[in-house]
Design a protein around this nucleic acid. Sequence first.
DNA 1: ATCATGTTTATGTATGCACATAATAGCGAG
DNA 2: CTCGCTATTATGTGCATACATAAACATGAT
Lengths: 234, 234
Amino acid sequence: MSAPAGRKTWQAVQAAVRARISRRDWKPGALIPHEAELAQEFGCSRGTVNRALRGLAEDGLLERRRRAGTRVALNPQRRAAFAIPLIRDEIEGKGQQFAARILTREMRRPPPDVQARLRVAGAAPILWLETLYTADGAPYVFEARWINTHAVPRALDADFTVISPNEWLVREVPFDSGDFTVSAMAADGRSAAVLGCAEGAGLLVLDRRTQHGAQIITSVRLVFHPGYRMHTRS
Amino acid sequence: MSAPAGRKTWQAVQAAVRARISRRDWKPGALIPHEAELAQEFGCSRGTVNRALRGLAEDGLLERRRRAGTRVALNPQRRAAFAIPLIRDEIEGKGQQFAARILTREMRRPPPDVQARLRVAGAAPILWLETLYTADGAPYVFEARWINTHAVPRALDADFTVISPNEWLVREVPFDSGDFTVSAMAADGRSAAVLGCAEGAGLLVLDRRTQHGAQIITSVRLVFHPGYRMHTRS
DNA sequence: ATCATGTTTATGTATGCACATAATAGCGAG
DNA sequence: CTCGCTATTATGTGCATACATAAACATGAT
């Protein structure tokens, strides 16, 4: 859009509103003019203003309610989007050599907490994989994964030395949602040995669960090398 | 919208497309029909389809490019939105008693890494605060904060025993953006003492930086009690 | 074959209009 | 005064239309 003099695109309106909020022309909690009014002021249609404000509301900067109008959020920044690392890309993106080594692959009966997490009944053995990912040979992240082979029997025939479990699953298995949890742990003997770090080091842990409908496909725990950081990409 | 028989709302279209993707009617990497075609199929206008697909693209489920069309993302779930805890709400939301205690409040010269992080020149002392937040008296999170008093001189007069530094800043100081980093550390002597945990425990660390224009207002480090978890809220 | 150019096409955005919906405000009956 | 209905109003959504823009594609010159 070539931005003719007075005419505003929704991005321009959004930027203008953002500026007013951050300049405190409109203070937290205050009601701002309604869409029609802003449309007139900015010389654009109400649709354009709506688009701009909707985006700001999604970012948590505004709170909108029908009939009640739009007000500046009292407490912005309730959420932050973190980039979920795609191990291979992350390592190769730094110009380092990516490698994956499977440490364990066996059928194992999930402990009770994993049974709950995977929503599998009883203790029938399912596929258990441990993989170490390295960057230029240095341990980068240790992955421990359960694959619900009741839901994905084909996983039993996959050759994970050729394609990583994650890449195989993404490519082969339908899924529709998932959830993440971030926590921290002190390196125990095993983690320290695998990651080649001191026992007791602080390690960032990312648990990810992937599901298709009501069924849980897989549950992974990524334990990162000491010093690893995740940050907002926005 | 009362959803008359054939007529679809953008949410309905979005759900239908989501279903096709997760059912793998449209496989990862595949091109999907263009907007006009889908509009005809769903019996709605192109605008409605556009709205639906735009949302899915924002979620990372689709990749869209002008002229090239829309295809199913090869690797979805590149990002996840985490709820950034508002300590007081989080604790009170669990029905526990919130309390904050200021452990340190002094002018201090920032070490070089903090100087860089705050983009302040030289080593002129700025405000340094340490606060412990408790839930039912149990240590919950330990906050260490630098406030750039060159940018916010008023902070020198604020009484943070009445209002927490975070709440004061949110209410009093304009800002427009920020960034977050998540990492892990092993509890050192001081953290262990303050949080009442064993030395060497794995602790989740959240660093947050808040800025207004080019100026950094404040930089906070939150060190959570052992076992704390952050999870996606989406 | 390579490169520059123009053409085509799918998405991106703006507009005006209409109506749906939620929620407040106001009114009247009891 | 309270309860419940109605009117009002700001946002939410849908549609048809028009034009902008990016990128793939085709064409033609060198």
